[in-house]
């Protein structure tokens, strides 16, 4: 087995990786080529599984000895039994799902914790882009044009927190990151983070 990406992880994946307890059972939804699972397997001894849409991603992951199935968050979460995992991870994928709320519900059903990261559509650059240019925002983190973007359900940090409240989901941890990967304070009401955070990362669980 070879090491993926020389052991270095994307900034949000590194934050996620550090949250996972050693030896945990982890499902990474939208795992790409499996960099996070590979890191968790090596450094945390986790029993990891992945779901990935692209044949190339799955093939690379399985080719590195990871357990990955070809599928997606909308269709392939419902089969897992409740409580099958300690952590279900969805990084930078929520906005590309057809039914984000159902996906979150399934994640919280099959995992004790759900870890979700997504790009913040409430960032001031996004707002300014729409306000001043009057076209759909294209930024460093949102690189697609409106007609070819896989992202069909954008939300802001505040939107996401509203949904968590509506779903009676406990927010165990909330982290906001600016474009350089620096951590910003993220209070319950989102506040300034909703304006300055490039992306956000949440650890959620069902109220016991």
């Amino acid at each position: 087995m070879m090491t993926l990406a020389n052991g270095s992880l994307r900034v949000d994946l590194k934050l996620i990786a550090e949250m996972v307890e050693p030896g945990a059972r982890v499902l990474d939804v939208g795992c790409g080529e499996g960099a996070l699972l590979d890191w968790l397997g090596r450094h945390r001894g986790v029993d990891g599984r992945g779901i990935e849409l692209s044949m190339e991603g799955v093939s690379a992951g399985v080719g590195h000895g990871l357990s990955v199935i070809q599928g997606d968050a909308d269709t392939d979460l419902k089969d897992y039994p409740s409580g099958a995992f300690d952590y279900v991870i969805l990084s930078q994928t929520l906005q590309a799902t057809h039914e984000p709320r159902k996906v979150l519900e399934n994640m919280l059903r099959i995992g004790r914790h759900a870890i979700v990261s997504f790009p913040n559509f409430g960032h001031w650059r996004v707002r300014a882009h729409l306000l001043f240019r009057g076209t759909m925002p294209v930024t460093d983190t949102l690189v697609h044009q409106w007609y070819d973007t896989p992202n069909i359900h954008f939300c802001t940090i505040r939107d996401f927190l509203d949904l968590c409240r509506e779903m009676n989901v406990r927010v165990e941890k909330a982290i906001a990151l600016d474009r350089d990967g620096r951590v910003l304070p993220l209070p319950r009401a989102a506040g300034i983070a909703n304006l300055f955070a490039d992306q956000a990362l949440f650890v959620l669980s069902r109220d016991a």
Binding site: M55, Q70, D76, D79, Y80, P81
Partner: peptide, 18 residues
Amino acid sequence: VVHALNAVAANVSFVEIR
């Protein structure tokens, strides 16, 4: 088959080769 294996939390990989 994959969905059935997921339902029992089996260790499964699956790929559809183009």
